[in-house]
Amino acid sequence: MISEKIQKLLFILPTCLFLLVISIFPFLYSVYLSLFQAKLTKMHKKFFIGWENYYVLLFEDDVFPTAIKNTFVIAFSSITIEIILGFIMAKIFFEIRHLKFSNTLRTITIMPIMLTPLCVGLVFLYILNPTLGIFSYILDTVFGIEPFAYLGESLPAKISVIAINSWQWTPFMMILLLAGLMTVPNEQYEAAKIDGANWFHVMTKIEIPSILSFVLLGVVLRLIECIRLFDIIYITTRGGPGISTEVMAFFTYRTEFRSFQVGSGSASAVIILIISLIVTTIAVTLLRRVEKNEGLS
């Protein structure tokens, strides 16, 4: 019989080793590479330049700082929209949870979450075609608004990206908050009813406090997703027009794999990494705390 200790190691060690090679090594190597002037198509000719890549990215160039700004603008706007709409939707589905069809409707509503982001981008690229798309048609015939290039002008493009992102993820916030609402003890509602409290009072004094930890969890998880936002940008705007929808992940991809400047690209990857680590630390602490309390339920 294999000793207890070895048995236990066999359970855990392979995963750790695997992650070390595939996940940790790359991040360390990125840090190393970021100190070089290096082109992917001629790696043997790379040379050390120290912090130059970071300096250029952050202080000499306007594209990367804009990409950081855009990432957070998109993240915060999307998440805000998702929370507000998600809460309203959760309330509606909460109220009708005992009715027929409510399950079916909910299942259809949450489908965008798992949909391939690439496909989400394509669906909207098709719908938002400025002259021939269905969106323009409806806007024109129903509201009499002249079609314009939703993805071709700075502000509309930014708004479109936020809208597409929110469209995909509002259902996530909805089911998360729905799960939160389910945890509100029925007695509290009853008590509020007896006190004659209005809906606003119920919302602010009973519901919001009890779902706050769910909201926090949602925000953190979505923030992590938004930092990596790539697919939708890649398909719809490619960072344009100008640099108005340039985000960190797309910029890094572009630098590393279209210009092949892997030194500079690694520097931007490392900066994303640092930002992610901060968010991740918050997320992991939060999840660990939740987990120790045997979950949110």
Binding site: V63, G152, E153, S154, G240, P241, G242, I243, S244, R254, R258, S259, F260, Q261
Partner: peptide, 17 residues
């Protein structure tokens, strides 16, 4: 890379950014 860099700036001018 040069053309893409240039293309971003030209596009910025054309979109009024």
């Amino acid at each position: 890379e040069l053309i893409e860099t240039l293309g971003i700036e030209v596009n910025k001018a054309l979109t009024g950014e």
